[in-house]
C-alpha cells in the first residue's frame, strides 16, 4: 500500500477518493511543468496511460489521476494531447482529416509515440 499523503504533489487539480468512481478527466504533466487536463476516455488510447491509470492498480497515478512525463517537453505533450482528442473525435467516423505534425517535432513525437505505445492505435480500440 502506498502512502499517498506523503507524496509532494501540491498542485493536484483533481483529487479523488479511492472509493469514488474514476474521474472523467485526467491530468498529464510535462517535464517542464505544463499540465494538460484530458478526457480520460481519450487518453485511454495509449495502453501505457491506460495501465498507469487503471483504478484496480495501486499506482500513485491511478489514485490521483495524474501522470507526470519527465522526458516530454510541453510542446511535445501538447501534440500528444492533441492527437488523443483527434483520435477520440474521429475514431468512429468514415472520413478522417489529416492531423498536421510539424516536421521539427517529428522525431520527438516518434519517440513519444513509441513510448506511449501508440503504434497500434488502429487495433487497440476495444
Amino acid at each position: 500500500m502506498l502512502h499517498t499523503s506523503s507524496q509532494p504533489y501540491a498542485s493536484i487539480t483533481i483529487t479523488m477518493d479511492d472509493l469514488a468512481p474514476p474521474s472523467k478527466y485526467v491530468t498529464l504533466v510535462s517535464g517542464d511543468g505544463f499540465e494538460f487536463v484530458v478526457l480520460r476516455e481519450a487518453a485511454m488510447v495509449s495502453p501505457i496511460i491506460k495501465g498507469m491509470l487503471d483504478p484496480r492498480s495501486q499506482f500513485v497515478e491511478a489514485q490521483h489521476a495524474r501522470c507526470v512525463f519527465q522526458e516530454m517537453s510541453g510542446t511535445v505533450l501538447d501534440k500528444v494531447v492533441e492527437y488523443f482528442h483527434y483520435w477520440y473525435r474521429y475514431k468512429d467516423s468514415e472520413d478522417v482529416p489529416d492531423m498536421d505534425i510539424p516536421v521539427e517535432l517529428c522525431l520527438e513525437l516518434l519517440a513519444a509515440a513509441d513510448y506511449l505505445g501508440l503504434d497500434q492505435a488502429n487495433m487497440s480500440t476495444k
Partner: peptide, 18 residues
C-alpha cells in the same frame, strides 16, 4: 481482434511528417 477505425496511429503520423 481489431475494430475498424480510420484514424492513423501517432507513430504513423510522425513518420509521415518525417
Amino acid at each position: 481482434e481489431a475494430m475498424p477505425s480510420s484514424v492513423p496511429s501517432l507513430t504513423e503520423l510522425a513518420l509521415r511528417s518525417c
